[in-house]
Simulated scan of single mutants.
Amino acid sequence: MARVAFIGLGNMGGGMAANLAKAGHEVRAFDLSVAALAKAEERGCRRAGSAAEAVAEAEAVVTMLPAGKHVRDVYEANVIGVAPATAILIDCSTIDVTTAREETGKAAAQGYDMVDAPVSGGIAAAEGGTLTFMVGGEAEAFERARPFLEQMGKAVIHAGGPGAGQAAKICNNMLLGASMIATCETFVLAQKLGLDPQTFFDIASRASGQCWSMTSYCPLPGVGPETPADRNYDGGFAAALMLKDLRLAMEAATSVDAYTPMGSEAEELYTRFAEKLGGAGKDFSGIIKMIDDSWSPPTSDPAAPPPGLRLPK
């Protein structure tokens, strides 16, 4: 087993670090949150006093951080030149492609192998060790990272060279965001046309319009398998995180002059839902509450559903 430094113990990182400890690794964990550190310690990790302390003798460094600026700060101040040059560096954050490539290049210049390995699957998958990892990096770096990633996930896929993992993640989530909006629009229209939601689900989930947003993550409560819709859109994948990923996708599209009208519209709608209507902390499927264009939320209840939708109070 190896000495693993794990930096970033939030909703996702906490479960991931615990799974590495469960696998028998000596996990030295660090986070700015004292509560997160205490929880990690309870789950088998060793508490480090700083990021630099965590990586000092590490054979692998895993990071799960909020944004590109945090990755840049942590790697340039506390990882590159601090961790042993023999350590494999694994960044599981979801960040912009440019920063991922830049940090991999800076690490390589100092003799490190590094991969970008963003995840798909959400908090439950992080806890259960069933994440999907999309990995960017050189083939040798990927093979070195693979054993650690396999102990945190069910699928580990080499997407290509440095930055390819981030590219795969933002493209996947642009598709997810747009398909969720289309699914919500469809349920709203079907209900306004007099179709029973369960009946429509039974039809569409077996017809050519079926997609993951409908069959596995239906945005209406009581329809299909249990989803955050059945818990008043609490838990799951927050709309603020979907918006973050859509913005990363739009930045990437601009950088390569790609025409992404559906992605752009999805970003605008999630901006409205998350930032103007107070839905940032709700699951991203909660956008069904504002899909009806005729709906104007009352001042006293900005999260109220549009008329006609049978949603939880």
Results as ranks from 00 to 15, higher is better:
E268K: 15
A126E: 01
I203F: 15
M262V: 11
D283N: 10
Y75F: 14
A266S: 05
A124S: 12
S216A: 15
A38P: 06
A178E: 09
P312H: 06
Y233R: 05
I90E: 08
T227P: 07
V223A: 02
S213T: 12
A249C: 03
V74Y: 11
D196R: 01
G279K: 11
G286W: 03
A40S: 10
Q191H: 03
H70N: 12
I7D: 04
A249L: 03
A167K: 13
G111V: 02
G279R: 13
V62Q: 10
A159S: 14
S300C: 09
R46I: 10
L9W: 05
L195W: 09
A204N: 13
R206I: 02
C184S: 13
V27A: 10
D230C: 12
D73F: 14
A77C: 09
S33H: 09
I170R: 09
K69W: 04
A51P: 00
G281A: 15
T183Q: 12
N172A: 07
R146T: 12
T98V: 12
P305T: 06
T86R: 14
G209F: 10
A40P: 00
Q210I: 09
A83I: 08
V82E: 10
A58Q: 07
T186L: 13
C211V: 02
L193W: 07
P297S: 12
C211D: 01
P305V: 06
G121C: 09
L248G: 08
E251W: 06
A51N: 03
A125E: 08
A124V: 14
G286D: 01
V223P: 04
Y217L: 15
S300K: 10
P147F: 11
A56T: 06
R101D: 10
G281H: 11
A117D: 11
A253E: 04
E138N: 04
R43D: 03
V61L: 15
H25I: 01
G105W: 13
E150Q: 12
M242A: 02
L309Y: 12
A29L: 05
G111L: 04
G161C: 14
T104H: 00
G160I: 07
A304C: 14
R247G: 07
V135E: 03
G13S: 07
R206T: 13
A167P: 09
C211M: 06
D283Q: 07
S179G: 01
D292M: 05
L189K: 06
A207W: 13
V188M: 01
L246Y: 00
Q110K: 14
A18W: 00
A60D: 08
K313V: 14
P219A: 02
A167I: 14
G281E: 15
G224T: 09
M214D: 12
A141Y: 00
T99V: 15
C171D: 05
R247T: 02
Q166Y: 07
P305C: 09
A238W: 09
I203G: 13
A204S: 12
R72S: 13
Y233P: 03
G163I: 00
A168C: 15
